[in-house]
């Protein structure tokens, strides 16, 4: 087990307790996030892993209070940055924090930049807003940021519009925008899913390098377990709006304690030679409109038994800094699937 892995006990940068988000729909309220708690240490990388609809992106948006109102209803017990409470959901004061203390890189770089504004102006906008720079100084700084994210000929390219850049370059520009306010926490919401595989590795490497240089904490949102192995210190696995397992990345891959994690690991292709048939997880995630009273994964779980359908297990400690929400987590090891 690696010794350098940062621990939660190190006075966390960001603490979130009991986040709940529901969306009003015609068929009733969809509970997208049901009591998620997270903490992020200084310079730490935490990955939230989950499939579509697991609530991982909504969790990320909540940290910037970007969940649309009044369709979405957000509540949390506590949200603190360096120990100071942040404004509540919908309160004043968020605009000064967004991009300054917490910033976000979005999924799709093709549509996340304003097509009719030059990239220089878009980066400079953040600097003028948060760093108290004149437009001229901001453009100068924007050039530095473009150089930092390794865009060739940054001075000339400031005056170009987004469509003149490739997808990977646009994501670099998004990263430059997110870094412009020198945030304490960067949320990277599947920043590589819309990109070519070769470009993905570059973008991930770039974010890692920038993190090392600035010491910011990163919250990765992804569905790609393979990606997680290489970049996260800790991993939280989400299913149907809840964290079902949280552990150091090494522990999670070696000994998953939730059947969902184990099955996820088994369904991911491995590159180390062992050629097995990829195992799909049978069934569908439950509808967020009518969640079962017991464990949300019970219907798809090979270990499910009567009590799983009766009561939803709480997240509890199953090892050192290892949490899982499963009645039968001791037996998960026997399912196989760990690496």
């Amino acid at each position: 087990m690696s010794v350098s892995t940062p621990q939660v006990s190190e006075a966390p940068v960001l603490v979130l307790e009991d986040l709940r988000v529901s969306f009003r729909t015609d068929e009733g309220d969809a509970e997208a996030v049901r009591g998620v708690s997270l903490s992020l240490g200084p310079g730490e990388s935490l990955a939230i892993v989950g499939e579509s609809g697991s609530g991982k992106t909504v969790t990320a948006l909540s940290l910037l209070d970007l969940v649309p109102r009044p369709v979405g209803r957000t509540t949390w017990e506590a949200l603190r940055l360096h120990g100071e409470p942040l404004p509540g959901p919908g309160d004043r004061g968020w605009e000064g924090l967004r991009g300054r203390r917490i910033a976000m890189v979005f999924q799709d770089p093709m549509t996340s930049l304003n097509p009719v504004m030059t990239v220089g102006d878009q980066i400079a906008e953040v600097l003028v807003r948060h760093m108290d720079l004149s437009r001229k100084a901001a453009l100068e700084e924007a050039r530095n940021l473009l150089a930092q994210v390794r865009i060739p000929e940054p001075a000339r390219r400031l005056a170009d519009h987004p469509h003149e850049f490739s997808g990977g370059q646009r994501q670099r520009i998004m990263i430059a925008m997110a870094l412009a306010g020198a945030p304490d926490v960067l949320i990277a919401d599947e920043p590589t899913t819309a990109l070519d595989v070769t470009v993905q590795a570059q973008i991930v490497g770039l974010i890692r390098d920038l993190q090392r240089a600035s010491g910011m904490s990163i919250l990765w949102i992804t569905h790609d377990l393979g990606l997680v192995a290489g970049l996260a210190d800790r991993v939280a696995v989400m299913y149907a709006g809840r964290v079902v397992e949280e552990a150091r990345a090494t522990d999670l891959f070696r000994s998953p304690a939730h059947p969902y994690t184990a099955l996820l690991l088994r369904s991911a292709p491995r590159l180390d030679g062992a050629l097995e048939r990829l195992a799909a997880i049978d069934g569908q995630p439950p509808s967020l409109l009518s969640l079962p009273s017991g464990c949300a994964f019970a219907d798809r779980c090979p270990l499910a038994e009567a009590r799983c359908r009766e009561a939803d297990p709480e997240l509890r400690e199953v090892g050192s800094a290892h949490l899982a929400a499963c009645w039968r987590s001791d037996e998960v090891a026997r399912m196989g699937g760990g690496r």
Binding site: E95, M104, F106
Partner: peptide, 22 residues
């Protein structure tokens, strides 16, 4: 509803600026 509007919001742009510039 375009992602670039959400992106502008995520870096702290206020409504007036979002309407005017984005």
């Amino acid at each position: 509803e375009m992602p670039y509007v959400e992106a502008a919001r995520s870096v702290g742009a206020r409504n007036r600026r979002i309407i005017w510039r984005h």
